[in-house]
Amino acid sequence: MAIEVRIPTILRSYTGGAKLVQGSGSTLSELIADLDSQHGGLRGRLVDDGGTLRRFVNVYLNDEDVRFLGGLETPVKDGDTVTVLPAVAGGAAVAG
């Protein structure tokens, strides 16, 4: 068993085009580190230099947004599904 991770179109260049990849870890942070060891560069697209989740992405554990759980420290386990989606946002205002 492993943790299944769904990758959005824009990040599939890191996974050789794969929509679904697998990883392991006991927290989301460990899972992302494991994914990065298999698909170099992926972590940098998900986590910023300060070690927090980038605002341009949404990460879900099963059916929940991890921002409403424990962020990168959210516990994960075999059999879980993690979904990554690009945040859809914008507007007339200049980025702050």
Binding site: T9, G91, V94
Partner: peptide, 14 residues
């Protein structure tokens, strides 16, 4: 017309 914010967030290449 897309603003700078729109461009920085645009993430569906298709």
């Amino acid at each position: 017309y897309p603003s700078r914010t729109d461009i920085s967030y645009a993430s569906e290449p298709n």
